[in-house]
Amino acid sequence: MQSPLRTLILNLVTWTLVLLIAFPLLWMIITSVKPQTELFRIPPTWFPETITFEHYWRLLSETPFLTYFRNSVVLASTTTLFVVCLGTLGAYSLVRFRYRGRETLAMLVLFTYLLPSVVLIIPLYLMMVAIGLSNTLVSLILAHTTFALPYALWLLRSFMEGIPEDLESAALVDGASRMGAFRDIILPQLLPGIISTALFTFILSWNEYLYALVLVNSDSVAPLTTGVMSMLISTFNIEWSLLMAASVMMSLPLIIVFAFLQSYLTSGFGAGGVKG
């Protein structure tokens, strides 16, 4: 039995909280379309009086934003492709094969999944300098593997465990090879899990900051995270509306994922080690 009053109060409370949580995001969008003159009004105007897209235009035409964007796309896609390919084969092996050291390996994966980046960053930096890869996108792709691979492997392992073995056994009895059964039976069933893992990996790599800060220091290879932050530091007079426009643009892939593929994100959560 729900009384109308109770429903009303529940909705009001919930939506007030939700809007409070979403406020920084709304503020980011509002700031990005305010003209520079309106920005420095005290007290601030909660709704923009005039809407302008000049900051977006300046961002794309006068700053290296598009270079950063391209670098981030290359970096995140390559990392994702690399890690998902390795991870799918690895997860298949960890779940469906029996050999010595398999359990230890699974524990090692989980351990590295929790490892702090700052422990690995010093040796990785020295390694990249030594093999002449410092300040390249390749060094970042390798560095991103350190957190993306354990993550993808762990996620894919959970998805793989959810696939019943009967079909695979039947195919094997019918004379299919293991790899044939993998391609025809496992892969199609694993596809939602692969998409979910790929989205997570892409977002992780897209958002990563520390490795980019240490391993890359020139504009031509900087991804969005360090690139946009350098726009904050390099200007004497911080142009907040420009930075907010950059923030909105930087969140575009995420907004697209949220609009169309959100169920894959929430299904990844169930698999990602939080099944209590």
Binding site: M28, L224, M250, S251
Partner: peptide, 9 residues
């Protein structure tokens, strides 16, 4: 959301 974006906002 990227931490960079969160921090800027």
């Amino acid at each position: 959301l990227s931490t960079v974006v969160a921090v800027l906002v």
